[in-house]
Design a protein around this nucleic acid. Structure first.
Lengths: 227, 227, 227, 227
DNA sequence: CATGAATGAGGTTTCATTCAT
DNA sequence: GATGAATGAAACCTCATTCAT
């Protein structure tokens, strides 16, 4: 696995040094995202309930009380973590489809790879793991995530599938279940990275995505189109 | 307390047969499995840390102290829950492959459907969600699960894929990543059921699995085999 | 001052010994009032906010967690303290007036002395100090106290005054303000006991009440009745 | 922090002139008294411990740090609040008696009404409530208040009573307890205003004081003096 | 002078664990 | 075996106090 899921202690030390000398005002602005970044790492690693605010504060290099200058409660902090992970995800997703001119297959490939590069493989990927683990304890967060991320992501895939079916690139399929089947390996890739990274199961993301796309595109193509 | 707080690796090795001979405690009646059943439900719903022993006891209809007659600690209970969910899963999986005579495609289909019917759709499916959510906090449990369930499950799929490739039913593929891509939608089906069940995203398991298999088998088939 | 306002450490030691050996069941029943008694002492001494639950628990001879077996929160405990102090006060007050046959003056004297003996000089007197100090922070408690204790107590005095005015024992007076003027020295007696007891201001309750009644009864009597 | 946490008795001795020369801090403008005024309001309303410096600062329209430019600690601020409420009270009281030429009854009436008009009904009245509520937590403040306000106030009343007894206006009485009985309704008037103001118990101060004086003066007069 | 971000000791509250009954 | 009252460590959270700006 080529990405470090959790920050090393060296990272932490660097972060502390880098921000130590900044003027007060810049700190004030930068603080919230420093805190949510630290919180995200720990929430993903340990889960919401098992993460102590002390640890978040320590990782962010501040005192426990400082957290409460920016977030009213642990739960508020949690929601800020999710919100901060969702907004860029949405923006990134929207950019993918706008005025795409190529084939449906190429669009599909672009969506899968783009998602992985801009979301899945980044720190934001942890949000997915977090939502999955904590959705039952935070139904409103899950609902928001569902409405704004899942629905939107499915919409992008639906467009690509419809386009391919309409122009004969793809077979006629049950589009809705197709969407879920396409998304699943992407989400599982994240989960594997965050859940079983430490036991021997080394998944190679690139080969994995390649295979996923290969199987998918061959599975979608009408028999007569294949050589 | 006569037991160390954290389980030793020996404890883990015992996971598989833990429910048969609970250490220092007899189990003649059904009590222990009533307790683990209640615990499983709540662990899946709230996560390990957020689940209180009071609630488990209440759901099982016993007093809190009774839990300690059967399990030395909350962590021991957790491991028993996992163990009890894993053993039948393994047994079920093993039965699938033994002396299977049909085509590789039919075997593959049988494995997918059989897993869903005997594991995924049952209460044991929750164990998957649980492992995913808690693996970082219980590396030994995750390792055990990996070694005994994941490795074993992948092994079954590997056999099926190899057989299909060898006999020309399937294209030549990167078998290892193929395995993960095949498993992913199954696991995600569980996660959807346990994480987003309450927001509008109603996944139809049968259609979903059909589509998964349809895409998969068409994607695996060599072009010339398709009509 | 002849009454100890706060328990001495000897009292505490005795209490602990006395209850140490009681069977579990008896403890369970007796616990709440042991806890409220300890809480009352400390709330009166330090005020609600400045009293730590640690101290209450220590004084009651239990652990901090035990408080939460009986009261949901510090505020709930506070309200229980008040409630427990109010109920007997009401009962005591009601008994005073029932079918009283003597003169209005004797009734008045009986009310004043009775209140002092059964309420003011007992541990329940602290509740008055507590209500006065904390009413702004607990408006609902204050309202309840007003409606059930103050209104009721004023009602008793109103009856006595009306009777005396009707039968010529007393002058015609503005009964309502008279009531408040009569009550005031009683309440202040408590406040003095709980607020300035430690500086040199030794008020002699008996002499004080005698003087209060003396001034009052002479002030109420019509001129021609005095010799 | 260069000051010990608890005030020394020397600090207390300075209470009276504390507002003239705040240690280490100059006071040219009205700022400090704006701060103590805000603090008084909140201390009276919520009590010392339950009042946050944030709230005091907000009410005074300054930042929290500004409080520490004028007062070394919350406790110092508290004592300044008391001191500022006591000094004018003493001055006002002293003026009452000087070279009074009228009857003892008129003097008594003047003392009661004067106190109400200049102390009880003003913002300084809150100090009385405050002392009553907090005296146990600030014994030195209470002692100072006792020595300089209570003793002095009782002294004024003692003079008036003695004069009346000596010249035959009043009966022979136990002067000391008489003093306390006379003061009590005044203090209770304040307490009612600050403690039960919000539940329906509307006390009319003028009628209340009239009745108090009426009862008192008739109670004090010898029988033969009444018509 | 004035600010307000930052601190950390100390408070309330929770809950896994124990043990007398 | 079973109970549930009791415990106390540890969590979340508050707020008096400091200090760089």
């Amino acid at each position: 696995m080529e990405h470090a899921v959790s920050c090393t202690s060296a990272d932490i030390a660097d972060l502390a040094n880098a921000t130590e000398r900044l003027p007060r005002r810049r700190r004030k602005d930068a603080r919230p995202s420093e805190l949510t970044a630290a919180a995200l790492d720990l929430f993903v690693e340990k889960g919401f309930a098992a993460t102590r605010l002390d640890d978040i504060a320590a990782r962010a290099g501040v005192s426990k009380g400082t957290l409460y200058l920016y977030f009213d409660s642990k739960e508020t902090l949690f929601k800020a973590v999710i919100a901060e992970g969702i907004v860029p995800a949405l923006a990134a997703a929207e950019q993918q489809l706008a005025d795409y001119q190529g084939s449906a297959a190429a669009l599909l490939r672009s969506l899968l790879l783009g998602w992985w590069q801009q979301i899945g493989s980044t720190r934001m990927g942890g949000v997915v793991k977090l939502i999955i683990s904590e959705s039952r304890n935070f139904p409103d967060v899950a609902q928001y995530y569902h409405d704004h991320v899942i629905v939107r992501g499915r919409s992008l895939l639906r467009s690509a599938l419809r386009r391919g079916i309409d122009n004969g690139e793809f077979r006629k399929m049950d589009v809705e279940s197709c969407i879920d089947v396409i998304i699943a390996p992407l989400l599982m890739l994240i989960i594997w990275r965050y859940s079983f990274c430490f036991c021997g199961n080394d998944i190679q993301p690139d080969a994995y995505i390649d295979t996923h796309f290969d199987l998918l595109i061959n599975g979608l193509m009408p028999p007569e189109a294949r050589t």
